[in-house]
Nucleic acid binder design. Structure first.
Length: 563
RNA sequence: GCGGUGUUAGUCCAGUCUGGUUAAGACUCUAGCCUGCCACGUUAGAGACCCGGGUUCGAAUCCCGGACGCCGCACCA
């Protein structure tokens, strides 16, 4: 791990560049150069392979601009906009609404900033730390606001997460999956947060890439048949208890974690395993990985349990790159309330349940003569009352009093009590959501950091083959007609087969190998004069530096073993 | 957003304190030559003072402001 050296080479060789550089740049944005974009796309493609083809989820793609209503319902409008004020004397920054509420003991959440300013002046509210004068209130709005349409009266926001785009499609998706839980939907794309002071390069961007899966499950069944396959996998768990007691993270199997109630359920654990598998396969090994459970006060407004996947870095320490949250039914319930749409699912029981229960009916032949024209409202009252309650009262006291405009006393002889059987075939529930949320840019950074190797004065990216931005280098040993033509033909052939190929003729062969190593090209194919006679080329392996003679028509077969 | 600090070719950097001819070096890059398999053959060439304002006859150099980076504080669903 060597952040400084790695970022230097990454900029030099076209992975990550500061955005808008010729206009002196804007912090919180980054450009992916040619190799960076390729690496990022390969990582995202690998992600799709695991979650879409691997888990049977489906990908959707929604707008990045959303109307205010959506983000109001999701809680982001309220949770992302904070009125701030600052002490002119000590420089401390505060949530304006918080210190006002503390002082005047009133809820001021709905007030505008200028009204809050007035309250501060009128009540002579000062800095809680040093009693200095407070500045005019300004808004920290973490969402980028924009206007939809020419009239400019419809407020829109750049989405702060991709997840909401999935939740608001729930009704359609539920029909697409024919009402059957569980099902998973993924979305990959940009999300936007106007960070106050982004300062850790690609770790905190204002525009960033997410890959999120929303897995809709039955809240009464958070198990998964796949758990069996992974129950003996070792996970490094930094649970709430361990953090509170300041102990070292546990290294235990998934099964143990479940049995000891460290993680809530099988699905969460299975998702933790999937995240780990993904990171392992793109070049981040277990020794640099851990799962950290959010502490109770740390959880986002929507979550009921949340684990971060953290990766160790030399510059930033443990960095959160993936969040795996049980969002419960927060989002669907909230969207259901705000949109007035039904967002529940009917769960059919395996066996219809037969429920025996006693019901109370009025004995009409006695009601009429006794209650006369009041009888209809007494009957209605009985029907609206829990039968068990009436029966209990009759058994205990011999009567049940119905309180309407006046009291009506019911005795046993006025009622018919029957035992009936009711068949219930299922129930309506709001699904819970398990959400693995990947920060792609941070993952790209971690892949760069952990793939970067320094060996014997040679610095290079040891990307795993599958995500290497350039897969093959093709080089004529010397820049002469014969070898060059063959090398050009091989290049074209490999490109047609879908490989990303670098073709290079200048410089010594050693230098070209070294440059290829630096950007992590796994294989180099060299054409020399012998090739003209025997039709064989040299294939050099980046990691072992071993060279093999392979005939030209077997190159494809050779490479297929590695990609 | 506050305080400190920095910014010179693609990269690493000298020069700035003490203003003055053509801004030095290394690597890189480009073109040519060279039967050459792990960056280290050869010739030639290209390439920079973060932006704006001020002081001055003259600013990479001094002053002010800004952008961006780094460090600390604050912020971080």
């Amino acid at each position: 791990m060597n952040h400084d050296k790695m970022t230097n080479i990454s900029a030099k060789r076209g992975f990550l560049w500061p955005s808008f550089e010729i206009y002196s740049g804007v912090s919180g944005f980054t450009d992916y150069g040619p190799l960076g974009a390729s690496l990022k796309n390969n990582i995202m493609q690998k992600w799709r392979k695991q979650y879409v083809s691997g888990e049977g989820f489906y990908e959707i793609e929604g707008p990045t601009i959303m109307p205010k209503e959506v983000l109001k319902a999701s809680g982001h409008v309220d949770n992302f906009t904070d009125p701030m004020t600052k002490c002119e004397k000590c420089g401390e920054v505060f949530r304006a609404d918080h210190i006002i509420e503390q002082t005047i003991k009133e809820d001021v959440e709905s007030l505008e900033n200028h009204e809050l300013d007035q309250i501060i002046i009128k009540n002579n509210i000062t800095c809680p730390e040093c009693e200095g004068k407070l500045t005019k209130i300004w808004n920290y709005n973490l969402m980028f606001q924009t206007m939809i349409g020419a009239k400019g009266d419809k407020i829109g926001y750049m989405r702060p997460e991709t997840a909401q785009g999935i939740f608001i499609l729930f009704k359609r998706l539920e029909r697409f999956f024919r009402g059957k839980l569980p099902f998973g939907i993924v979305q990959l794309g940009k999300a936007y947060r106007n960070e106050i002071s982004p300062r850790q390069g690609v770790i905190r961007l204002r525009e960033f890439n997410q890959a999120e899966a929303e897995i809709f499950i039955n809240p009464n069944d958070k198990t998964t048949p796949k758990f069996k396959q992974i129950e003996n996998e070792i996970l490094t768990l930094h649970s709430q208890d361990i953090q509170i007691n300041q102990q070292e993270p546990l290294k235990i199997t998934a099964k143990e974690a479940l049995d000891k109630n460290i993680a809530a359920n099988e699905i969460i654990l299975y998702q933790l395993y999937l995240a780990k598998k993904f990171l392992n396969e793109i070049g981040i090994s277990d020794e640099f990985l851990r799962f950290r459970q959010h502490l109770p006060g740390e959880m986002a407004h929507y979550a009921i349990d949340c684990w971060d996947v953290e990766v160790l870095t030399d510059k930033y320490g443990w960095v959160e790159i993936i969040g795996i949250a049980d969002r419960g039914d927060y989002d669907l319930k909230s969207h259901s309330q705000h949109s007035k749409e039904n967002l529940d699912v009917f769960i059919e029981y395996d066996q219809p349940q037969i429920i025996k229960k006693n019901i109370v009916k009025p004995n009409l032949s006695k009601f009429g003569p006794l209650f006369k024209k009041d009888s209809s409202k007494v009957i209605a009252a009985i029907n609206n009352t829990d039968s068990e309650e009436i029966i209990k009262s009759i058994e205990e006291t011999g009567k049940y009093i119905i309180k309407l405009d006046k009291d009506y006393e019911l005795t046993r002889d006025l009622l018919i009590i029957e035992e009936i059987e009711e068949e219930i075939s299922g129930e309506k529930i709001v699904p819970h959501v398990i959400e693995p949320s990947f920060g792609i840019d941070r993952i790209v950074y971690c892949v760069l950091l952990h793939s970067f190797k320094e060996e014997e004065g040679k610095d290079y990216f040891k990307f795993v083959n599958e995500i290497a931005p350039v897969q093959v280098g093709v080089y004529p040993l010397i820049n002469k007609e014969g070898p060059r033509e063959i090398a050009e033909r091989i290049t074209e052939d490999l490109r047609n087969k879908g490989y990303t190929v670098e073709f290079e003729v200048t410089g010594t062969i050693g230098k070209r190998y070294a440059k290829a190593d630096e950007i992590g090209i796994p294989f180099a194919i060299t054409v020399d004069f012998e090739t003209l006679d025997d039709g064989k080329v040299t294939i050099r392996n980046r990691d072992s530096e071993k060279q093999e003679r392979v005939s030209i028509d077997k190159i494809n077969y050779y490479l297929e073993n590695y990609f």
